[in-house]
Amino acid sequence: MENLEIKGSRDVYFIPSVDFNVENGICVLGGESYLEETVKFYMPLYEWLKKYTSEVKRPVEFNFKLTYFNTSSSRCILDILNILKDFEENGGDVKVNWYYDSEDTDMEEEVEDYMIESELKINLIPT
């Protein structure tokens, strides 16, 4: 299995940056997420995580560094958290960090909601 890397960009749509590392299990999803075909974009991310958590099974540290995402993307982010939660429930070692602008109270609420929905602990890290 290989690393998954997608360069973020900001044009007509906003493509988030993706950096999932097989060697150390550190995954980063950052930038802004507003896409033409949201589910189609996130599908390879789900597949990578499912493969990693079922075959490699080493600890995962997932770092969210998103500054903006639309509601379609928000649904896909929940799906990522649910995959990580499944891994944790099956004995996997999962750590989730969410970096956010300390003045962005909307983002703080958003992460709290994700914690309730996914039942996964997320470390809120103000920057």
Partner: peptide
């Protein structure tokens, strides 16, 4: 919002 977000995906990826 949390309840609605848990519903099956709508048309065109609408949440």
């Amino acid at each position: 919002k949390r309840e609605q977000r848990n519903m099956p995906q709508g048309e065109k990826g609408s949440a």
